[in-house]
Design a protein around this nucleic acid. Structure first.
Lengths: 211, 211
DNA sequence: CCTGAGTTTGACCGGTTGGTCAAATCCGTG
DNA sequence: CACGGATTTGACCAACCGGTCAAACTCAGG
């Protein structure tokens, strides 16, 4: 009974809405990933999106809403590489492909990686629900697949979940700790050597030809 | 020329000062590591330390000062495991010991790990200087040691810096992404299997007996 | 128990921030 | 080109936040 009825989040309506909503989420990704939820301000996002602050709040009812919309939009993309791991494929090839895809994600979408990193490092106050349902389900399923591969002797025995943690840690590190990595490699692009390094690492870990 | 001369940061004076300075840094570690610099408030730290806000500012001139004091106090401890890597020791044993020590640090000092993670993920605005001098120096030195070990055929050839990144990523992941890890392992302590997992991983990567 | 340095705090300040609102402007459609 | 809904914005507000200050309190040494 006050604010000019803002558009519900449901179906996109006009082309202006589509354009502005997209611009806002893009700007929000920039700002949230660089400063975290608390560190980001609506004004910053507005400036980055080329809109006014009240205008942002016309499209999204609150800063929280921008954040959660952004998160849930991105989660699917983020989990795609894991979903793409094919139980019918060759185990070693599938895992190495997953590692490669995940590393490529770090390279192509570092902001998304840092967005999730920020949130999880701080205890995932706005994502615990998602972690313990959607992500957990996917991880359980893929763990079982990996376990089956191990039981079939296709790859070495290891703890499937710790294997997954290792893949996430190693690939996301290049995006999340980008500043540190680049500072220490002065000039050399980390992504020159990273793919080969990680492939070797996981191949040696998993190749059953080696004890 | 106003505020009752706050104690300089130099030598500790009274026992009250020692106790309160310590309590403040302890509380600051709690709050900064959980919310990041921007997300933390002086009031939160004050409450956690059992002191009033102006009282904190009597001991430290600003929030920034608390943060940087905390950071530089912790950095030494944080880098100790790497410093302890002995060029004269057995290469494989030295590296595996480093991994084990680093993992133990994640277990014993998760807040410290998250404090650094928060700062670096957000571009290390208050630490770039330190990274590019103190850390860089140490990393260059230890990289050379590792390279020498590789050249001597004691361990497999890999990129020394990427090896170090891998050690950091894998060990700190358990502290920095603790919520996620624990959510996905429902109940099982990640640190039960992590040491063996990481030892196997790095042993297989580095053991020169394997191609 | 007096004194002065050391310590603590309530009140306050200016700037920022998330969010509101009414009025103004825009824009597609008839 | 007129109209009504969609969009945009300047002004505003209350809460919060980092920091200041003068006054009050504590406490060790004489």
């Amino acid at each position: 009974m006050s604010q000019a009825q803002p558009p519900a989040d449901g179906p996109k309506k006009t082309r202006i809405q589509q354009k502005n909503r997209a611009a806002i989420l893009e700007a929000a990704l920039d700002v949230f990933s660089a400063h975290g939820f608390r560190g980001a301000t609506i004004d910053q996002i507005a400036r980055a999106a080329g809109l006014s602050k009240p205008n942002l709040l016309y499209y999204y009812p609150s800063k929280e809403a921008m954040f959660t919309t952004l998160m849930s939009n991105l989660l699917d993309t983020w989990l795609n590489p894991l979903r793409a791991m094919d139980p019918e494929g060759d185990p070693m090839a599938e895992i190495l492909a997953y590692v490669a895809r995940k590393l490529q994600m770090s390279r192509d979408y570092p902001r998304e990686s840092r967005l999730f990193a920020n949130e999880i490092v701080q205890g995932a106050p706005r994502m615990l629900e998602t972690l313990s349902t959607e992500l957990k389900e996917l991880v359980e399923a893929k763990s079982a697949v990996i376990q089956a591969w191990m039981d079939a002797g296709k790859i070495n025995q290891t703890h499937p979940k710790h294997l997954m943690f290792s893949i996430w840690a190693l690939t996301q590190h290049y995006a999340d700790f980008d500043v540190q990595v680049r500072t220490l490699m002065d000039g050399e692009d980390p992504y020159d050597a990273a793919p080969a390094h990680l492939e070797t690492l996981f191949r040696r870990l998993l190749d059953p030809a080696q004890s």
